[in-house]
C-alpha cells in the first residue's frame, strides 16, 4: 500500500476512534456531545445513527485500492459481467466503487483482494510479460479460464481460483443490488402493494391451486381497511 493510501486510512481510522470516545448513539444530532466539528448531516439517504454517519461519511470519501488496482478490478468485473443489449457492464453499474468501499468497510477483504490482484499481475507477467490489465483480451481470458472453474482448475491455480471466486461474489452482489441490476433481474418488489397470492398463470404453470380452506381463511383484501370485528369469532 502506498504512503498516500496509508495516510488516508489513518484519517479514516482516527475518525472512527474519536467516535468511540464520545459513545453517542443518538440518531439525532446532539450539540453537547463534543462533536461540534463533525458534520452529522445525513446525506446518505437512509437512517443512520451518529456513530454510523461519522464512519460511513469518512469511508465513502476514501479509496482503498490504487489506480492500478482499480483499473484491474474494472477489467475483471466486466469480464465477469459484461454489458448486454439492454444492461450496462458491471463497472458501469457502479460495481468497482462498491468493491472499493467494501475493502474499507470490511478490512478482512484487504489482503485477499490486493494480494489476489498481485497474484494475477504476477501470473500475467510470467505468461505474457504484461500486467493483467495491459494483456490482450485473449490473454486475459486465458488466465480467467484457468481460475474460473473451481472443480476443473489445476491444483497450482488454487489461490487464483479462490481470488476469482471472491471477485465473482462481489461483482454479482454489487451488480444485482444496483439499480440496473435489479431491473435486469426483474425484481418487482420494494413498493407498497397488496399481496393477494401467487398469480394465476404461475399457479397454472406449477399445477397448483389454493384450496377452499385456504381461500376462506386468508385475508379478503377487499376488506383490509375495515376494522377487524371479532363479534362472531369463536375460540
Amino acid at each position: 500500500m502506498d504512503r498516500r493510501k496509508t495516510l488516508k486510512l489513518m484519517v479514516a481510522g482516527s475518525a472512527a476512534t474519536g467516535l468511540v470516545l464520545t459513545g453517542c448513539e443518538s440518531p439525532k444530532t446532539s450539540s453537547d456531545a463534543g462533536q461540534s466539528k463533525v458534520d452529522l448531516e445525513n446525506d446518505l439517504g437512509y437512517g443512520r445513527t451518529d456513530e454510523e454517519l461519522v464512519r460511513d461519511k469518512a469511508l465513502v470519501k476514501e479509496s482503498f485500492f490504487s489506480d492500478h488496482d482499480l483499473a484491474t478490478i474494472t477489467v475483471l468485473a466486466d469480464i465477469i459481467l459484461p454489458a448486454d443489449g439492454d444492461h450496462p457492464s458491471a463497472s458501469n453499474a457502479g460495481v468497482v466503487e462498491f468493491i472499493d468501499f467494501m475493502a474499507l468497510d470490511r478490512p478482512t477483504f484487504q489482503v485477499p483482494l490486493s494480494g489476489g490482484l498481485r497474484w494475477l499481475d504476477h501470473e500475467s507477467s510470467v505468461r505474457f510479460n504484461k500486467v493483467f490489465k495491459d494483456a490482450s483480451a485473449d490473454q486475459q481470458i486465458a488466465i480467467v479460464d484457468d481460475i474460473a472453474y473451481p472443480e476443473d482448475a489445476k491444483p497450482e491455480m488454487s489461490q487464483g481460483v479462490k481470488f476469482f471466486s471472491t471477485m465473482r461474489d462481489l461483482v454479482l452482489t454489487g451488480y444485482f443490488t444496483s439499480k440496473p441490476g435489479l431491473e435486469d433481474l426483474g425484481f418487482m418488489g420494494n413498493v407498497p402493494n397488496v399481496w393477494d397470492g401467487v398469480p394465476q398463470e404461475v399457479l397454472d404453470k406449477h399445477n397448483l391451486a389454493y384450496d377452499e380452506k385456504t381461500l376462506k381463511e386468508c385475508v379478503d383484501q377487499s376488506t383490509r381497511n375495515e376494522i377487524m370485528d371479532w363479534s362472531d369469532y369463536k375460540l
Partner: peptide, 16 residues
C-alpha cells in the same frame, strides 16, 4: 430521519 424501510439496496454503500 431514522427510516430504513422502503429504501433501495443501492442506497446503502455496502448494499445492506
Amino acid at each position: 430521519e431514522t427510516q430504513t424501510q422502503m429504501k433501495w439496496p443501492y442506497e446503502s454503500p455496502r448494499r445492506g
